[in-house]
């Protein structure tokens, strides 16, 4: 059996009375794409923050390719291959798109000089920002910011990419473009963990879906079976989860 690219064991985290993770286990196989759904405030983004090393879980261990990374600071986790995007895009606004990517290619992927330039330009082209590489990141619209967020995740040459609601707020054709892009990335062997409210974007991409609620994974498996699960429907009380619906 190959080592899981990412393994969370018994992760617990609470903010005062609010439980965002309770004895949570999750393993991601190399090249696997997993979608995570769950009601707002279920702790999805906090889960990412703990994997990326920005927040420490109260207990539990995180390992990557068999190596315990629980005590590794965030910048080292980026270097060894954990890339993430933020739900609210956070580009370096005063820098150009190209420079944004260059920063990640330099320190995230450890590239220098020409190799870093090439990687930055390529990832920019790849996500469709080729025409605006020299524009200030602060001047970009939402779609371009989301693309830049994705490109920054890719520029650091990750083994596993954490996507936090990259499709939220986009129009249907834009979502379709994005799905196309992410599928392409995944086919190159990148493992992906994708938090998303735009469920149909997930179901087009992932073969495995987990639902996070109350700090636990209440369902984990085939996307359509998970979405049909009465317990999952229950936590989305008031909203009917269908594959066509956009609940973002």
């Amino acid at each position: 059996m190959t080592e899981p690219v990412l393994a969370l064991r018994g992760i617990s985290k609470r903010f005062g009375e609010v439980v965002v993770a309770e004895d949570l286990d999750l393993t991601v196989a190399p090249g696997e794409a997993i979608g995570i759904v769950g009601p707002n405030g279920a702790g999805k983004s906090t889960l990412f923050s703990m994997i990326a090393g920005e927040q420490k879980p109260d207990s539990g261990a995180i390992s990557m390719l068999g190596r315990d990374i629980s005590s590794l600071p965030a910048q080292d986790r980026t270097r060894i291959g954990i890339g993430r995007t933020f739900q609210i895009p956070r580009p370096f606004e005063g820098m150009s798109v190209f420079e944004n990517l260059l920063v990640f290619a330099t320190s995230g992927a450890g590239l220098h000089g020409h190799a870093a330039y090439t990687r930055a330009a390529e990832t920019g082209e790849r996500v469709g920002l080729g025409d605006v590489l020299n524009a200030q990141a602060g001047s970009l619209g939402l779609l371009a910011r989301k693309r830049l967020e994705l490109a920054r995740g890719l520029a650091s040459d990750p083994t596993v990419l954490l996507l936090d609601e990259v499709a939220g707020g986009l129009t249907e054709p834009e979502v379709a473009d994005l799905v196309e892009l992410i599928r392409g990335v995944q086919q190159e062997g990148l493992a992906i963990v994708w938090i998303e409210h735009v469920v149909h974007a997930l179901t087009q991409t992932v073969r495995r879906l987990a639902c996070l609620a109350g700090g636990r994974l209440i369902a984990d498996g085939d996307p359509f079976e998970v979405l049909d699960d009465p317990v999952v429907r229950e936590v989305y009380l008031g909203t009917t989860l269908t594959t066509e619906e956009d609940t973002a």
Partner: peptide
Amino acid sequence: TATGRMTRAVSDDPDTARLTGAN
């Protein structure tokens, strides 16, 4: 320079810059 760009990144958003491996 790479260090200079990193300086601008840190000045722009220290938290995100830290994720890229910036000290």
